[in-house]
């Protein structure tokens, strides 16, 4: 912890200096702009938006779509990845299909989702689910493959069926890598949700950002941008901390890599 506190100074020094420079520049020139606002105004606008609930409401919309999409895409990806890793034939059959479909940039499905679902949560959840399905599939596939084969022999010896092998042996053994997959996928989910909102869906933080820009409110625009960054960064750090806490005792897990 003391290490974390000691690294906090250098970590904050650069952004603090940049913000201060901007602030002083605005104060010195007295400039008013449609594109940039003094940092103090952006922070003030963020605090006001959080206090009056407007930014909170947008955050809830974005996070709801992010989490729902992550649950659908991640759940299906985990199921498909484990099944493929455990059944050789299906694995060989699926590989080109997987390579092909996952190459489609998720955001390209936005027009199709719009066509099928119209505006609202469902289309955003669909795109987020598609975007998270492939990385979770691939990461859980390799996580299950990395499980010690002798453990699977043990379960066979104990007469476990496929389902109990999966739930009692494979998934617990693969848990640390699955947690990493969850962290990466949650980052992707947030990015895709915000992108959907910026591009088309009239709800959430992405849309708030876009409207702030269109209505020439730079303070609000920078406030929302900063807030999105804070959410993404916090979620990543929280999941990373959870991984370390849960799996720190396991010798087979390298929790030192923060990437």
């Amino acid at each position: 912890m003391s290490l974390a506190l000691r690294s906090l100074g250098p970590a904050l020094a650069v952004p603090a200096a940049a913000l201060l420079a901007f602030e002083l520049w605005f104060a010195a020139t007295g400039r008013v702009s449609d594109t940039i606002a003094p940092p103090s105004q952006a922070f003030w606008r963020l605090a006001a938006g959080l206090a009056d609930g407007s930014i909170v409401a947008m955050t809830v919309e974005t996070l709801a779509a992010t989490l729902a999409g992550l649950a659908v895409g991640g759940g299906l990806g985990l199921a498909a990845g484990s099944v493929l890793a455990l059944t050789r034939r299906a694995d060989m059959t699926a590989r080109y299909v997987v390579e092909m479909l996952r190459a489609i940039p998720s955001i390209a499905l936005l027009p199709l989702a719009l066509l099928i679902f119209g505006f609202g949560y469902r289309m955003e959840i669909f795109v987020v689910a598609f975007a998270t399905f492939w990385p979770v599939l691939i990461l859980s596939h390799s996580a299950v493959l990395a499980v010690e084969p002798r453990l699977i022999d043990v379960s066979r010896m104990l007469g476990f069926g496929p389902l109990s092998t999966l739930s009692k042996i494979v998934l617990p053994a693969a848990a640390p890598r699955l947690a990493t997959a969850l962290r990466l996928a949650s980052g992707i989910a947030l990015v895709v949700a915000v992108t959907c909102e910026i591009t088309a869906n009239p709800q959430g933080l992405g849309n708030g950002l876009m409207r702030a820009q269109e209505s020439l409110q730079p303070a609000l625009m920078w406030a929302v941008l900063l807030w999105i960054g804070v959410i993404g960064y916090t979620a990543n750090r929280a999941l990373l901390a959870m991984e370390r806490r849960l799996f720190a005792h396991r010798s087979d897990v390298d929790t030192s890599v923060a990437a």
């Binding site: 690294s7 250098p10 970590a11 904050l12 020094a13 650069v14 952004p15 449609d34 594109t35 955001i107 980052g187 947030l190 990015v191 915000v194 992108t195 910026i198 591009t199 992405g206 950002l209 876009m210 702030a212 820009q213 730079p218 625009m221 920078w222 941008l225 999105i228 960054g229 993404g232 960064y233 990543n236 923060a258």
Partner: peptide
């Protein structure tokens, strides 16, 4: 030590979120 955390923050920021700013 000084730049790493800021870079990590920028990476966590959805790249598409800078589009409105870039349009401005």
């Amino acid at each position: 030590r000084y730049l790493g955390p800021s870079l990590a923050f920028m990476r966590a920021l959805p790249a598409s979120a800078v589009i409105p700013v870039a349009i401005a």
